[in-house]
Design a protein around this nucleic acid. Structure first.
Length: 314
DNA sequence: GTTTGTTTAGGATCAG
DNA sequence: CTGATCCTAAACAAAC
């Protein structure tokens, strides 16, 4: 089994599970939702290993998408023709990350289980979650536009009191993982809006990107390209060459109290958005988490909702 | 016909 | 050892 610790995964299987990879892809996208094909692209772009045997892993990945509750399907809008739906992470699966690390799953995610105390409705209803995400996406879009026009809000036009509180930036955290590849040459890709949602949680959540000042790797928003997919997303920037992606993954962790009524503006997001580009490939011989399991690397998303096992609750 | 999505099934590995 | 988690394969149905 491939273990982290090599220079790259060019020829080895990445230590991430499909769930992790999928989560990375989804979170790398500002809209926080991607169609299947984009998820494939993301993975193939980043991990050469997956440029082969596509039939095999893609089948597994699809299986994971539909089998795990942490992934929710968001229907395409009528005006957004295309195949398949968008896939997003369940709003409640965020806290299943272990410090945001994609190398290790903290706990499985099952709708309806855990977070019993979480008012978060979606947890009990996939539809709600999907709806919520759509709303969020829309808001993101709006926020993005606003940000685009208001490049630098002094104090931060933050809609939410988000602060880079994330003291801990796990090297395997999605932010890092993705950030590493997406060092935008010239800026944050902006994304259009062709219809689909954009930042909402993000904008406010990424003060360092949109206005708080610390955008080192990320530059000001700029319409990167004109390659928008049919979904209204900049394919190029998002899933290609990974050169123009803004991609700052944000653990979709709506905090237990932020969604009840689809407030649209999650209050805080564990902004452990690191800028440190580094870890797509775990370089240390040891799995960052100190884990040694040769093949247990990747799971960070706690999602894999249980397998066939009858998961508790439900 | 191809892609997407759902299900079922079996094997392997890891943690408790 | 057992249960949880992951991976892979495969059959099917539905949508494009």
């Amino acid at each position: 089994m491939p273990r982290p610790g090599r220079n790259t995964y060019s020829d080895q299987k990445p230590p991430y599970s499909y769930i992790s990879l999928t989560a990375m892809a989804i979170q790398s996208c500002p809209e926080k939702m991607l169609p299947l094909s984009e998820i494939y692209k993301f993975i193939m772009d980043r991990f050469p290993y997956y440029r082969e045997n596509t039939q095999r892993w893609q089948n597994s990945l699809r299986h994971n998408l539909s089998f795990n509750d942490c992934f929710i399907k968001i229907p395409r809008r009528p005006d957004q023709p295309g195949k398949g739906s968008f896939w997003a992470l369940h709003p409640s699966c965020g806290d299943m990350f272990e410090n945001g690390s994609f190398l290790r799953r903290r706990k499985r995610f099952k709708v309806g289980s855990m977070q019993a105390a979480d008012p978060l409705a979606p947890s009990s209803k996939p539809h709600d979650a999907a709806h919520y995400l759509q709303q969020q996406a829309k808001l993101r879009l709006s926020a993005l536009h606003a940000a685009a026009h208001l490049p630098q809000m002094p104090g931060g036009y933050n809609l939410s009191p988000v602060t880079p509180q994330s003291s801990f930036k796990h090297p395997f955290a999605i932010e890092n993982i993705i950030a590493r590849e997406y060092k935008m040459p010239g800026g944050l890709a902006a994304f259009s809006a062709t219809g689909y949602p954009l930042h909402n949680q993000l904008t406010p959540a990424w003060p360092h990107m949109y206005g708080s000042g610390m955008m080192d790797t990320a530059a000001p928003i700029s319409m990167a390209t004109s390659d928008y997919s049919a979904y209204g997303m900049p394919l190029k920037s998002i899933c290609h060459g990974g050169q123009t992606l803004p991609a700052i993954p944000v653990p979709i962790k709506p905090t237990p109290t932020s969604m009840p009524g689809l407030p649209g503006l999650p209050t805080h997001i564990p902004a452990f958005l690191a800028n440190s580009p580094q870890s797509l490939s775990p370089t240390s011989p040891q799995t960052a988490t100190g884990q040694s399991s040769p093949a247990a690397p990747g799971e960070a998303l706690s999602s894999s909702a249980s397998h066939q096992s009858v998961v508790a609750v439900h």
